[in-house]
Nucleic acid binder design. Sequence first.
DNA 1: CTCACATGTGCACACGTTTGCACAGTAGCT
DNA 2: AGCTACTGTGCAAACGTGTGCACATGTGAG
Lengths: 348, 348
Amino acid sequence: MARNTFPPESPVQRSAPAGGRITAKDLAKRIGVATSTVTRAFDPQSRISADVRQRILAIADEAGYRPNAIARSLNRRRTGIVALVMGDMTNPFYPAALEEFSLQLRQSGRQLLLFVVPPGGDADELMPQLLQYQVDAIVVTAARLSSHMSDLCGRQGVPLVFMNRRVDDPTVWSVCCDNQRMGAAVAEYLVNSGRRACAFVSGDPNVSTTTDRLLGFERGLAAQGQRLVACVQGGYSYEGARDAVAQLFAAGQPAIDAVFCANDLMALGVLSHLRMNTALRVPEDVAVVGFDDIRAAAYPENALTTVHQPLREMIECAIRLLDEGRPGGSVAESLREIPGRLVLRSTA
Amino acid sequence: MARNTFPPESPVQRSAPAGGRITAKDLAKRIGVATSTVTRAFDPQSRISADVRQRILAIADEAGYRPNAIARSLNRRRTGIVALVMGDMTNPFYPAALEEFSLQLRQSGRQLLLFVVPPGGDADELMPQLLQYQVDAIVVTAARLSSHMSDLCGRQGVPLVFMNRRVDDPTVWSVCCDNQRMGAAVAEYLVNSGRRACAFVSGDPNVSTTTDRLLGFERGLAAQGQRLVACVQGGYSYEGARDAVAQLFAAGQPAIDAVFCANDLMALGVLSHLRMNTALRVPEDVAVVGFDDIRAAAYPENALTTVHQPLREMIECAIRLLDEGRPGGSVAESLREIPGRLVLRSTA
DNA sequence: CTCACATGTGCACACGTTTGCACAGTAGCT
DNA sequence: AGCTACTGTGCAAACGTGTGCACATGTGAG
């Protein structure tokens, strides 16, 4: 038999690669066209005769062929991958954001590479790994990033969007709810409903999301001739807020009659303390207001009055910004604020 | 000046590519070594003299160079990317799983490509996209996958692991809690503490996680001479369970004195109904037991008795299996069951 | 019939890395 | 000195796709 002498000179002419994965070249050979023609069949922009395209697509489908996105990425210098860096998965707001992100990114034909920064950790360590994968853009939410890493992204030409966090850097985008205005709106509402001693439960005094809400709250109080009576640290967690507020009330402060929390999770912790450990009635004796409008806020046993963050719009905005490259103008222009909405339930 | 005639014949000799990204070739030219030497400097396995390696790494660091993971993936035919397909982000158990997954994958040097299947949706539509990106393995949790897609992965040689779900397919892995045994343990505990009329709140009658827990529960009851009094569908959601159980109790059933729920989220819905809408006391009149042990189960206002799922161990197991390729043996061998643990709090 | 032009296809190179092979140099041993 | 073995480096061919260029063919106008 001359069988095994068939390709005598060709050195490594294996037409079926080990992995079992079929390539454009295989397909082309089988159909009798050039590999570039196969490529063009998959690109709607390309000019190619309708019948050839159809034939190629049909056979490709039958053979289970789809273009290798890795090879394409290398060639096009665009991966279609967006990195999402996220901290604090324990706050239900962020899983909800993640779900919406995933949905919208897929609708725009992109993939989502996820990085969760561990509780005490820093997003900085993740960046090298992340940049190695040549992501087209990076979205950071609920995590801290050094300015060093931020302009490393800049040098590599990777757009960076902070979501639910504002940074004073005109070269990166920020998308937020209008935190100051909503903080003021909460103040106005509480004072109008007769509250005279308001406290604030902060998340982290270094994070804009918290400080903007606080600033707006204080300004809103001032506009009505009041001042903030107390401000405690809740560390963004249920337990942290519960314990902080326990101390606050145990300290026999001048009877606080309203507590505004930087997020819903902490507000639930506050509610828990008031209901389980004190005789105070909500809302008669103490009003509680949260921020985010997570699902649990609407549960009847919580019925939490809170500020609704328009998650879908915020994420739509963030994704639009990904295509804009890096912002060109001032800090103010690099910030997008989406209006929130006060949702009245039964705790205030 | 002869400056601009320096490379007279070379056609496209641009040494600084447009993207601003520096490549191994650039670095090599700058140092005066071959590109392969640069590669080897980054591979601890490679034999290369210590001083050359150090010099390369130093200059690479200074220049901000890191090997392009996409190009490497193409060459090695391994991307280092694991796809995670996840449904039902509204159940806090899954965000917690996601966080742990992210952590463990990063520790093993891999990346996480996330796909969230939309509420009514199907994982099948995602698979083509996902396979295009040449992921090294796929983990599916809380989502349904057709057997057609399952063996498409098989043909492409991509290991597939179902997590918290069991499938009767010996070619894919499954990692679960020992649901039947824990269901039986709950039954035993409830009967031992004097319960005489137990009901079950199911998630989805077609999902193994639910049916195994139910089966174990029924067997456990039978072993004590009892039978299940009622079984309702809660659809895995807080609201679904609350409404289902409302109907159940409104129907004036033979006074049910224990409710076992297929997950914690539904158990919280049940608690909500009992506490808000009935005069029944928990646990005196009705016991409530959940499954998963999410964080909210431990909140004092819930204090939910539940079955703890050992998330970390389950995920460790799943990640180990990724490296095993596809399972070789029987259905039984392709299933890994991790023991759970009953956590007694105040609802039963 | 010639020219201008549009259409469809193939060729070959590029994307940035990895890796088998060859080879120069050095060391160890008889 | 000659042989073997080992170390460190360069060369060049992959990996699978996209795309500019050339070219063949068809089409209509003058």
